[in-house]
């Protein structure tokens, strides 16, 4: 081959070697970067998607910390058997506020993209403490420590500010008062009988627009979620996160014309 004959030239000339590496990296870079220029066009236009509440953000961090993604994907692929088992296929719009996204590629356990509302809070707590207590044949590890550890949330507002930055100020900056009230919102969501109206209104306004009808409220798990009303634990946060997964878009309300746009 001609290249074999000439590679001595490249190997012995630093300038040519560097140039060769440079060209290779540029090609790789283009393949990864150019598609991002048109990424907006791949995100469906649907109502209801909102950024995670502070408690859910904290729960999501625990999900990532504990490595749940090693066994669970969060993407219902557009195949018939997946849809019959899990529900509507996932939309790009549904994970547009996920950094990093949790689509995953490994399913030792079931997909969790639509697990929100499928079980009670109490079931999740029992299952996470010891999966065998409710699913005798389960091979999922138990996470009993989550119920014991108080949630550290004093930096949750900084956490949200960072997510906002990553999203080019399109998330929390657009939710009225989200960052200023982050700690208060988190406590309200996890405390039984707390006043959650401001929290719910904030995120509902983002999800459905400020002119939303009064009964158009975004779904979120409220109250004492882990059966221990005295402390906000990591378990509270994780359950809040699991209970919102896949519940933001109301697919029964998505009309067929809009759906046809997703199928170009």
């Amino acid at each position: 081959m001609s290249l074999i004959k000439h590679h001595k030239l490249i190997e012995t000339n630093v300038f040519l070697l560097v140039l060769g590496i440079f060209v290779t990296v540029i090609i790789g870079g283009l393949v990864e970067i150019v598609p991002l220029f048109s990424i907006k066009s791949t995100i469906e236009n649907v109502q209801g998607v909102r950024p995670y509440t502070p408690l859910e953000v904290a729960g999501r961090d625990i999900y990532v910390r504990e490595g749940c993604y090693n066994c669970h994907s969060q993407m219902v692929r557009p195949f018939r058997d997946e849809i019959e088992r899990y529900g509507h296929y996932s939309l790009a719009a549904e994970s547009k506020f996920d950094h990093p996204f949790q689509w995953g590629s490994k399913r030792t356990g079931p997909d969790l993209a639509r697990v929100g509302g499928k079980y009670s809070n109490e079931w999740h707590v029992r299952h996470l403490i010891n999966p065998r207590a409710v699913v005798p044949e389960s091979i999922m590890p138990g996470y009993p420590h989550l119920a014991q550890r108080p949630l550290a949330y004093d930096t949750i507002d900084a956490n949200m500010r960072t997510l906002d930055l990553v999203d080019r100020f399109e998330t929390y900056s657009q939710v009225d008062g989200a960052i200023e009230n982050a700690v208060a919102d988190l406590e309200a969501q996890a405390t039984p009988d707390a006043d959650t109206s401001a929290l719910v209104a904030r995120y509902s306004d983002f999800a459905f627009g400020p002119d939303r009808a009064e009964d158009q409220v975004t779904n979120m798990a409220l109250g004492d979620l882990d059966g221990n009303p005295d402390v906000i634990t990591e378990m509270d946060a994780l359950v809040a996160y699991l209970q919102v997964l896949g519940t933001m878009v109301d697919f029964t309300a998505v009309d067929q014309t809009r759906k046809a746009e997703w199928i170009r």
Binding site: V34, P35, F37, S38, S41, T42, P78, Y89, W262, I263, R264
Partner: peptide, 16 residues
């Protein structure tokens, strides 16, 4: 990818 979207393919196949 093309500027305002992506090339849809000659067969018109679409996953969804």
């Amino acid at each position: 990818p093309v500027m305002s979207g992506f090339f849809g393919g000659a067969t018109g196949w679409h996953a969804r």
